[in-house]
Nucleic acid binder design. Structure first.
Lengths: 125, 125
DNA sequence: CTCCGTGCAAATACTTTGCAAAGCG
DNA sequence: CGCTTTGCAAAGTATTTGCACGGAG
């Protein structure tokens, strides 16, 4: 097991993820990088997204219209999803959210994360 | 447009949904009802779930391992998803959750719902 | 007769995977 | 050389849809 990130394409995917707050889908990344890497294939994007997710570099936010959406922002925050256009927007909340956290839940051994998503209409729609 | 729910199979699907708190997937419903309706088809289950969702009788909770999970409990509450076995458990919280609600979010016109999901390990795993 | 509801199978759509070739240390 | 990464195409999987038939009013 080596320290890894030494693939150009993986690097590019990750950097693109870091540079945007649009919570990209695999398709979006593919389309964005295709001009720069004409031989890029969609399979590679999927593989690398999964890999980056596994090593904790990015997170899966949610599935919008059947497409998985990712976020390179690791610090805990919530999201808003536009029900019309599918846009995903970061939502930062006062830390009172933490107070919701891990209450005792019947039938649950341990809680280690949560995901809070708001739904509605964005200002462009 | 008539008041409708007068299909036997739809009725059965809805009643099954009401009788369980396991947040079924289409497949689970299909398997459960197949003995009673040997000629039931998966397509019908999907069609009726969508229909019930559209008319507000049930709600989509989340997607676990690629499978959409539904809930006939309409009153607002949260969920816990076991990352190992995929079990979905209802979570009822003190109403301080409401306080999280619709804060002003940049780029958002209106918020009309939210979805809060906890992840962790359930007591069976 | 006219709709609604359904079985069945084919079609979608996103994602995963097998494999052989290319890259990198 | 050995291990990683990738393109490509095929396979997978959950879900949707077209169509013709069956049932209720």
């Amino acid at each position: 097991m080596r320290a890894q990130n030494y693939s150009r394409k993986r690097q590019a995917i990750y950097e693109l993820m870091l540079s945007t707050d649009s919570h990209p889908s695999a398709e979006w990344i593919y389309t964005s990088l295709k001009p720069t890497f004409p031989d890029l294939s969609l399979g590679t994007v999927y593989r690398n997204l999964k890999l980056l997710e596994d090593n904790g570099s990015i997170k899966s936010v949610t599935v919008v219209d059947g497409c998985e959406r990712y976020d390179a922002r690791i610090t805990p925050h919530s999201h808003f999803v536009c029900k019309k256009c599918g846009r995903v927007i970061d939502v930062f909340m006062s830390d009172n959210v933490d107070e919701i956290g891990p209450t005792n839940i019947d039938g649950v051994k341990s809680v280690d994360s949560y995901n809070l998503i708001f739904y509605g209409i964005c200002e462009n729609c």
